[in-house]
Computed example of a mutant assay.
Amino acid sequence: MTLTDASVAHLMPELREVMREAASIALPYFRPGGQTSARVWNKSGGSPVTEADVAVDTFLKIRLSELVPKAAWLSEETADDPARIGRDLVWIVDPIDGTRAFLSGHHDWSIAVALLAGGEPLIGFVHAPALGVAYEAIRGQGAFKDGTAMAVDAKPALRSARITGPKPMLDRLTKGAGPDPDFTRIERIPSLALRLARVAEGSVDVGMVSPNARDWDLAAADLVLREAGGEVCSLGGEPAVYNRAEPVHGELVALPRGLREAVLTAWGG
């Protein structure tokens, strides 16, 4: 199945409605500033999952499969099907990105959905229900926050940048940036998708991502960031690669393209 520009644009109103419905499933379980009302248990690796994650995942698998029946599926809360490897179209889904934030009443969690075509994100949608904010992008057609076009902050230099992420990575970046880089450290954003989206909207300049992030944490926001004038890359400058047999990533950084050389030099130093 080949998706034309026209057919992709036709999908977006339906996808927006699907994301709104997914949010309406998750929100009743969310308690701002308090513990979720949802049942919580630990997966085999020790990370938490709630009944809200499972309910949203089930809903999205049904509805997104109806939208693009030929697309394979990769989600945090669904058993992996190796049949996705090599498929042209793949939905990549995190029903609740930032589950620990969700279950503890922190507003920075999101629902992240990407559609890959030929191994690259074609559609990216990051919805933050507790904040009432939605980010979306179609490849080659720009990035939008609640329907308004957005772009990364066009800072000319790394000095005084607003940075966020794991402290060891921020310490390394700060050390490599030379004397008195005057960074502003922003409290770590629990949802990786929102961390990247905030670079895309220009409220953060550099977002660091520790090893072991998964495709579902990154793919949707990666496209939003690309379309806003930024990128996600490794220490060596390589872009994130999606839909591999093991959908796991190493250290990454999200940044505006204009800061790419300065950040990679400082981070590697």
Rank of each mutant, 00 (worst) to 15 (best):
V68K: 08
T4C: 10
K61R: 15
R20K: 12
S210E: 14
I25E: 05
I138C: 07
L89F: 05
H107C: 02
A151Q: 14
T2E: 15
H249A: 12
D5H: 12
T58M: 06
A22Y: 00
R244G: 15
E261L: 10
L196Y: 03
P13M: 08
A71F: 00
A134K: 00
R198L: 02
R63L: 01
L235Q: 12
M169S: 11
F125K: 00
H106S: 09
V40F: 08
V232W: 06
G124P: 04
A83E: 15
E227R: 05
R159S: 12
I92T: 08
P168A: 08
P28G: 12
A193M: 01
I111H: 04
L3P: 06
E136M: 05
A137E: 05
H106R: 12
A177L: 03
K167M: 11
A79P: 13
F59L: 15
L64Y: 07
D215G: 04
S203H: 03
V90A: 07
S160G: 06
S234I: 02
D81Q: 10
L15H: 06
F183H: 03
A157T: 14
A240K: 07
Q35W: 06
A22C: 12
G86Y: 11
T78Q: 06
I111C: 04
A154T: 09
V199L: 06
L264Y: 12
G237F: 12
